[in-house]
Design a protein around this nucleic acid. Structure first.
Lengths: 114, 114
DNA sequence: AATATATACCTTGACAGGCGAGGTATCTAC
DNA sequence: GTAGATACCTCGCCTGTCAAGGTATATATT
């Protein structure tokens, strides 16, 4: 875990939504996917993850249902709504914008541009 | 103000440090510089700004002194320390790393890469 | 039979950063 | 005399994160 969560804060929901865009998934699986994609650099803490699900569902961006596992632990699956897709796409644009802005603001007086 | 502060959270200190890297400055001036650089998209709230100064000074990354204005409102100037320069440079590297990671995580299942 | 590990979910309480709202003081322009 | 710009500061709330705790099922080990 080498990324401080303050740098990811604000992207948690977007990252989750990315995992739900093309297929339904569940908490444990999403978190594993994030860990793998980041080569172990980052993982969501469970309390953070489930808190985010709660917010996303309250806002109508996802809906949930119980999987019909006949064996193993039960899974709560999440499905992205149309509103959720729009929210994700908007978030992506905001990220592109924020990225440029932060780059610029950090470059303001940075090393070697006196 | 079109950038939500959650996307900037975690970068506040780095942005301030960028403004202090090459010259001493003071709160009001730094905030104006940020507003201009972002074309009005972003500004630090005063409570946020002064809170960050406090943390940075407590951690030894900056030192402060009163300017000797003979006219106008008094200014508290901040000066970056050697430790502060290292902190800034480290933060920049972390940002480069986080940027790549977030790009990857948001791209996981995003639109059109089934 | 007991223990450990992996899967899978959930909640509570504390903490830290950001911010709204309030305050003080100086100077300029109308 | 009062409005606006400059310039600083603080209190208390809100929100997202996290450590720590809990529940339950299945498999592998001892």
């Amino acid at each position: 875990m080498s990324i401080t969560s303050d740098l990811i804060r604000g992207h948690t929901e977007t990252i989750i939504m990315a995992n739900l865009y093309n297929k339904d998934s569940y908490g444990y699986e999403i978190n594993k996917a994030i860990q793998e994609a980041s080569d172990g650099q980052y993982e969501l803490k469970e309390a953070t993850l489930y808190g985010a699900f709660r917010r996303l569902e309250d806002n109508g961006y996802i809906v949930s249902y119980w999987g019909d596992q006949t064996t193993g632990a039960r899974r709560r699956y999440y499905h992205i709504t149309d509103q959720g897709k729009i929210y994700f796409e908007t978030s992506c644009k905001e990220w592109e914008n924020a990225k440029k802005l932060i780059d610029k603001l950090i470059g303001i007086g940075g090393k070697g541009n006196e």
